[in-house]
Design a protein around this nucleic acid. Sequence first.
DNA 1: TACTTATAATAAGTCTTCTTATTAATTGTG
DNA 2: CACAATTAATAAGAAGACTTATTATAAGTA
Lengths: 147, 147
Amino acid sequence: MEPLHYWLMKTHTMFHREVMAETARFGLTAGQPKVLECLAKFGERDQKSIAAYCEIEQATAGSIITRMEEGGLVARRQKPGNRRSLYVSLTPAGQAAAQSVLQVFESIEARALRGIPKSEASQLVYLLQTLCDNMAGPAQATRGASR
Amino acid sequence: MEPLHYWLMKTHTMFHREVMAETARFGLTAGQPKVLECLAKFGERDQKSIAAYCEIEQATAGSIITRMEEGGLVARRQKPGNRRSLYVSLTPAGQAAAQSVLQVFESIEARALRGIPKSEASQLVYLLQTLCDNMAGPAQATRGASR
DNA sequence: TACTTATAATAAGTCTTCTTATTAATTGTG
DNA sequence: CACAATTAATAAGAAGACTTATTATAAGTA
């Protein structure tokens, strides 16, 4: 049987593929759904924190946001007192797209979890979180070393 | 708390990031570890089936393999009786790289699973497989419909 | 056998992603 | 206050990923 990382990759890829199949007809491209989700959930945000949420680099976020700005989904503005950060927010068109994206996420997730008891779905999320915590930690469980 | 798909994305991204941190010093780029894993596990293979294992498109696999061929990791050849498919196999250098990749995969996976009982790790894989099956199935659980 | 359909790979174009380097602004320290 | 260090964004260049279209080969059918 294939190892854990194979299924991690496959599940993620399939989810992404389903999302794109549903959202491409709104004109969204690969990087955009997550950015829309982020802005819908947290509101106006600077590019650095959008990148962090989406698990991509700042430069990548910047180019995706530029394309979204050109497409009229988001707007960038400066806030008084901080001329360094750029704050990104949804335009009305962006809000509409974001709502569609959230619905698509929900419906695909519901479909993926079909037949799985709620307790096991929670267990799944818990395990994934634990994996992330472990990977974020020191490379070796060097018992007391690290930092 | 973030929804399932967020953790799916994050776990996958972190795993990939760790893999690249360990393999980039061998000169491997992002798409190559999975191709090496595929060839190490299954031996000589045509590009279509490599793409299927890696969950990428054929055209993408082609360009990754071209780069790997230029780097001396793999070789392409035709088999008598089939002038359509190209069969890809590891060179000695590719086999060495593949062994390193398999070790890296194993060690990161072990680290990610630190503290998680074996039974729960199996449960995790089972759940991920179920998600894949569900997503591959019909879009609506139309109770008896499908095909 | 000839024609149609299907299959494997490649080509071209766009977008995503990364890394490294640069620029501008902010913060911290002497 | 002036200078150094940090931080946010952008620029540039390479690789990966997708889509659509093309080419060559193979298979199926009339």
